[in-house]
Design a protein around this nucleic acid. Structure first.
Length: 513
RNA sequence: GGGAGCGUAGCUCAGCUGGUAGAGCAAGUGACUCUUAAUCACUGGGUCCAGGGUUCGAAUCCCUGCGCUCCUACCA
């Protein structure tokens, strides 16, 4: 004999409750419900009630304190007019107090308490309310009032089942904690973990405010191909897929850069794209194979114009989304109040390794690196050794927002060089919290130099896409500034999040089974 | 890629040097008309990630696999 009820079958219990509700005339999966407003809007309607309740309580205490010294204090606050509302949401908590039930209900905007008893809603509705489970959606109608403990509540006069939940929600106090579960069942994470919900509200606000700020400065949002016949604009392994109609492999873009610059050639002088890039590479707490970037190009500008944009946009995001220009990140307080420090790559390395660093013979330099306890490859030349120093000893010390400029041209071969020094690229790397957040460029508009750089980079086949781009440059591209800002990492920075998966709604995971 | 850790009830977690599993929340029943992590009483609930092995006996020790986490490396 198999005992089929060997474990608590929450689903079966909920289905039973659903049947009971159906028998009482409740449609388990309801339809449109017209609310007075969102719960947070309804809470605003209740503010006078809370004020009046507080005043009445103060008056009562005053009366108690002065015994018979009865004053018409309470009378000076006319009782506020009753407010009838209709509210809807998901039940988060149910507290049964005999013939009274308190329930917490939440929608996308906030939480409100329901006060349910037979006196106000009738015996049948009260009895049926007992068959509701945590996670169910209901709509209810009644007057707002303030409980003895000062909580704004809806005195429920009638209620409607809007959607029965068949699955048990996570524990109310801790919420869903298991990291894997939070990513795989993000819908549960979102309705049970307020801080997760809040983080994604902020992410959305960051994207919205970025668009708004850029549009206010004459930038035009565009969309360029994600399916490309050659993944250009950066060096990374692309994802490959197959286009049946042309019987040809195509690539998911690794960057929109080349197309956006062609738009500059075409005369759209200020363009930006916020979209997804795809890179067929590793997965760790700062890398997801698909990620969101802002790329932006401005004709007649240069790297400095891009610095102006960063110094304008970031404070705007802090002000409108975070409410402070100071942000806690990785144990440090980041201050996004501009202007940001601007310092050359060379100066930073000298700061760390000594003013004579760039005059040292290689062997001397290696000794100095060794003295710092930094491992290095003896085959490296001065340039690579210096870059290792920058990477390992300098960059991570740059906690406050910093523009690192005048980077050796070898590392940024596709950028224009500095007007006074052809060995330096006229670019910046914007570093915050010890991590590179955003590169900015004075773009190469010289088709000869660009073609040369491409052929140096890609040894074998001259890629057709890149050649199209050089052809575009030959049409004449105005001097241009460009930048690329990783929106996931920016969101991490602004929300104090250390793991990229916590700012991506549905991050890449391995198959669970 | 290398190293370490974790996987136990729907959820959050205990479980010692091996003796077939516990708590809180949630659930069921009952009490309670101002609670809010409500409270109180009683009750039910387990493929201890999967598969092998050692052992009289494995959640526990060993091996393999899967997933997650952290460190490290790689990658812009």
């Amino acid at each position: 004999m198999e005992n089929e009820t060997s474990s608590t079958d929450y689903r079966a219990i909920r289905i039973e409750n659903m049947r009971a509700l159906q028998a009482a005339g409740h449609e388990p999966f309801g339809r449109r419900f017209d609310r007075t407003g969102t719960i947070s809007e309804i809470r605003v309607l209740g503010e006078p009630l809370i004020a009046a309740a507080a005043a009445a309580k103060a008056a009562a205490e005053a009366v108690a304190a002065q015994s018979a010294a009865a004053q018409p204090i309470a009378d000076s606050h006319a009782a506020p007019a009753p407010v009838s509302v209709k509210a809807a949401g998901r039940l988060l908590a149910i507290r049964k107090m005999g013939k009274t039930v308190f329930a917490d209900m939440r929608d996308g905007s906030g939480r409100i308490q329901l006060f349910v008893n037979a006196k106000n809603c009738g015996d049948a509705a009260f009895a049926a309310f007992a068959k509701l489970d945590l996670g169910d959606h209901v709509g209810c109608a009644g007057e707002l009032f303030v409980t003895r403990t000062g909580e704004l509540s809806v005195r429920v006069e009638s209620w409607t089942l809007l959607s029965k939940a068949l699955i048990q929600p996570p524990e109310k106090f801790h919420g869903l904690v298991d990291t894997e579960d939070r990513y795989r069942r993000r819908h549960v994470d979102l309705f049970s973990n307020p801080e997760s919900r809040e983080r994604f509200y902020k992410r959305s606000a960051i994207l919205r405010e970025t668009r708004r700020w850029l549009e206010g400065r004459g930038f035009m949002e565009v969309e360029t191909p994600i399916l490309q016949s050659h993944a250009g604009g950066a060096t990374a392994k692309p994802f490959v897929t197959h286009y049946n109609a042309l019987d040809r492999d195509v690539f998911l873009r690794i960057a929109p850069e080349l197309y956006l610059k062609r738009l500059i050639v075409g005369g759209f002088d200020k363009v930006f794209e916020i979209g997804r890039d795809f890179r067929n590479e590793g997965l760790d707490r700062t890398h997801n194979p698909e990620f969101t970037v802002l790329e932006l190009y401005q004709a007649y500008g240069d790297r400095r114009s891009m610095m102006d944009i960063i110094e304008g946009l970031l404070p705007h995001l802090c002000d409108t989304v975070i409410g402070s220009r100071k942000v806690q990140y990785g144990g440090a307080e980041l201050d996004f109040t501009p202007p940001y420090r601007e310092v050359s790559y060379e100066a930073l390395v000298k700061e760390r390794m000594g003013d004579d660093w760039f005059e040292l013979p290689l062997a001397e330099a290696q000794k100095r690196v060794e003295a710092q306890g930094l491992p290095f490859d003896p085959a490296w030349n001065e340039l690579l050794l210096t870059h290792e120093v920058y990477d390992k000893l300098v960059e991570r010390t740059l906690v406050q927002p910093t523009f690192v400029t005048r980077i050796p041209h070898e590392f940024v071969p596709l950028a224009k060089t500095c007007p006074d020094d052809p060995t330096k690229a006229d670019v910046f790397e914007f570093v915050v919290g010890g991590r590179e957040l955003c590169p900015g460029y004075t773009e190469q508009n010289d088709p000869f130099a660009q073609r040369e750089a491409f052929s140096a980079q890609v040894e074998e086949d001259a890629e057709s896409e890149d050649l199209d781009f050089v052809e575009a440059l030959e049409c004449g591209m105005p001097p241009t500034g460009g930048l690329g800002l990783g929106m996931d990492r920016l969101t991490m920075m602004l929300t104090g999040t250390e793991v990229i998966r916590d700012v991506i709604l549905f991050p890449m995971l391995k198959d669970s089974k």
